[in-house]
């Protein structure tokens, strides 16, 4: 199933955090425009707001001012239930910590994504199997995360993020916890799958190698995104 072409438009987004004194402004008027298939790596020093930006793009956090639209939808105008549904169907997340449920097998972790949308049907199971095969984990599908290597866990996380054919794929240091060799392999696989999916890809990374693999980079420093308009 392929979705309608969805553009990502981020317009003058700011994010403040309240403190005892003046609010701490983490993002300062960030703007970004991407179309399906676009890929960008967001780089910058620690504390520059990269994860905050990713959380806002993934609707896990709200901007203080500014707007975000994915296609025709302003997700922050949706109610809680609609937002959850939006997230389940339009956004895929890959975390540095992979965040697999330790009590579920690799396959079950992958099937969490369609479960979030409603129910798991045969089509979902077939897609999960195909994706796991794609990443070389067919024979590990029935294993718990504790029985997988770091790279294998991250591959499961990547498959999970792609299960619902998201319009927007977000990755927060996807290879951050892997050694260089595993990181490269996972990074290659991730980018390949992302390209095949046609989703908009935003990767936050410290890895110069990964950023280079992604191609286009934007720098976020002091809350300001440079080279942010395409």
């Amino acid at each position: 199933m392929s979705g309608t072409p969805d553009s990502l438009v981020v317009d003058q987004v700011t994010r403040d955090y309240p403190t005892a004194g003046e609010p701490l402004r983490v993002l300062r008027g960030v703007s970004l425009r991407m179309t399906p298939g676009d890929r960008v790596a967001v780089v910058g020093p620690s504390g520059s707001g990269k994860s905050t930006l990713l959380n806002i793009l993934g609707t896990l956090d709200r901007p203080t001012t500014g707007s975000v639209r994915l296609g025709a939808t302003d997700p922050f105008a949706l109610g809680a239930r609609e937002l959850a549904a939006f997230r389940a169907s339009r956004i895929g997340f890959v975390f540095q910590e992979h965040h697999l449920l330790g009590q579920c097998t690799a396959l079950e972790n992958v099937l969490l994504a369609p479960l979030a949308r409603g129910r798991v049907d045969d089509a979902a199971r077939n897609r999960a199997a195909a994706l796991l095969e794609r990443v070389g984990l067919t024979d590990r599908a029935g294993h718990l995360p504790s029985e997988l290597s770091g790279g294998e866990r991250q591959r499961v996380a990547i498959v999970r993020a792609l299960m619902n054919e998201p319009s927007l794929l977000l990755a927060d240091e996807p290879t951050g916890n892997l050694d260089a060799q595993s990181g490269r392999r996972v990074g290659d696989l991730f980018l390949e799958l992302a390209r095949e999916s046609g989703a908009i890809l935003v990767v936050v990374t410290h890895s110069a190698a990964l950023a280079e693999q992604v191609g286009r980079s934007l720098r976020l420093e002091g809350g300001v995104l440079t080279d942010g308009t395409q």
Partner: peptide, 16 residues
């Protein structure tokens, strides 16, 4: 809490 956060990130609504 991280697992619960993950479910939220995956699109499980709060009520769910």
């Amino acid at each position: 809490s991280r697992q619960i956060g993950l479910l939220g990130a995956l699109g499980f609504g709060r009520g769910r």
